[in-house]
Design a binder for these strands. Structure first.
Lengths: 249, 249
DNA sequence: CATCCAATTTGATCCATATCAACAATGTAC
DNA sequence: GTACATTGTTGATATGGATCAAATTGGATG
């Protein structure tokens, strides 16, 4: 299975975006070849996290954003009462921590859903660099704005769509993100548990489970545990649009 | 009633952040006195919009962000099916359009909820300026990250909280935003219709109406139309926390 | 391999809120 | 001021998904 682990350089501490297979998805995509060194200079090679380990914790001092190199990460907010709300899933090439850039402390907790490696971008250095590289600054605005849009999209899903529509939307989102990485868009394994899906989509675990089996019975997907095969992508897309079409015939 | 209309300058087209009563809330707050001119230079004095008029439209070319000077704005996404999802309300001193910075076109539609005046910041010039003023760049990151957090907060409200909790949270949010502007935090008039509140919070209008009257019967608020008085702020805060406390005794 | 604990699935019941249906109030145009 | 449209309120009923309960599967550990 395609993993995004870059070749080792002579210097073990310096990242090598040049060789990283994700350079066309990650921050480097915004940067000209000859400026890439300046980005590499500020990257701290992050360590490897095992499943369940925290990359960072809510309410601890915010220092860095992290790019996922391999594996996957879930972010969540813990309320005063101890309730967890999953706010996002992050896959290789995606940047985690942008929601914390307004605060002294991390606004959420990030933990590895599986064995996961990351690149660390200390914010002070990152901000300094984006001040010098307009393209990189532009890309940061782009990413953050994208994250706002994603979150609005989620809010919309939560407030207006049925359980089936929410789950179809999630499956399609994962699908396209696997595709971006040149992996199969129809045959993948979910990095997260049903529980996380439920929490993220504002549903009960039982409901998620039921919808999965319903989709399976309809021949739209095949699911055994976390292994998923999308048998009928068009049907899934139809499900996500069902709602809006019905209410405006 | 305190309005944020700045004094007119000799040059009618140049904004005068120096005299604007919102300069401690708006972009200028991040800028040193002597750099303020550079910000003023890129601002286009926006025109006045009447209630219902569009400041910008989803899917038209994205050119500018807008700061609310007086009045208020609601942003919403229209789905393919024509469904509207209200994504936010913006009051004086707040910046509208950050969610569009990743796209060629505006990601949402912004319309005036009442007679509203704005300052316009063309993005190309704004990006150029933030590249030169690190503090301003930092502030932009701050604002965008804040918007991500707000949206996560909304998603959380939508997925985990009851109708009463959602409405209490909205009232408190408005309250603190009025307070920031040195207006009464307990006595204000809602800029938006019940319908918009319902849409924003993922509820039916009828439910919003019922909760308002329930709060009123409990003596927590007094509401006549859009005029609202918060009689018992602590009770409201208690409502928003009710949920998390109950589930973790 | 046996044991244990966590994750998933399935079934039965209940409830918060949507929906449907009037009606009242408020605002707006003539 | 009257008429019409929009917005808000209140009541009755229906329902999607939560919750409670229990069985099943799967993965980890010794």
């Amino acid at each position: 299975m395609a993993q995004a682990i870059p070749f080792r350089q002579a210097s073990p501490l310096k990242a090598s975006c040049h060789q990283c297979s994700l350079s066309n998805l990650c921050l480097p995509l915004a940067i000209e070849e000859n400026d890439l060194d300046r980005l590499e200079d500020i990257i701290q090679q992050g360590r490897i996290f095992n499943r369940g380990e925290h990359i960072f914790d809510q309410s601890t001092p915010f220092r860095s954003c992290f790019a996922v190199k391999s594996g996957s990460i879930k972010t969540s907010i813990i309320t005063e009462g101890g309730e967890e709300q999953v706010t996002g899933f992050f896959m290789p090439g995606e940047l985690v921590g942008l929601d914390s850039m307004s605060s002294e402390n991390y606004a959420c907790t990030a933990r590895a859903l599986e064995r996961t490696s990351v690149c660390e971008f200390p914010v002070d250095k990152l901000e300094e660099l984006t001040g010098k590289l307009p393209d990189l600054q532009h890309h940061m605005y782009h990413l953050m704005s994208q994250e706002i849009q994603n979150s609005h999209q989620l809010a919309m899903l939560l407030s207006k769509n049925t359980a089936e529509e929410r789950i179809a939307a999630l499956l399609l989102s994962l699908s396209s993100r696997f595709q971006r990485r040149r992996m199969s868009p129809t045959n993948f394994s979910l990095p997260m548990a049903r529980n996380d899906i439920a929490n993220f989509l504002g549903l009960a675990v039982e409901t998620v489970s039921r919808v999965f089996t319903r989709f399976q019975n309809q021949g739209i997907i095949k699911a055994r545990g976390r292994e998923v095969e999308l048998l009928d992508v068009e049907a899934l897309q139809l499900v996500t649009r069902e709602f809006s079409r019905q209410s405006h015939p």
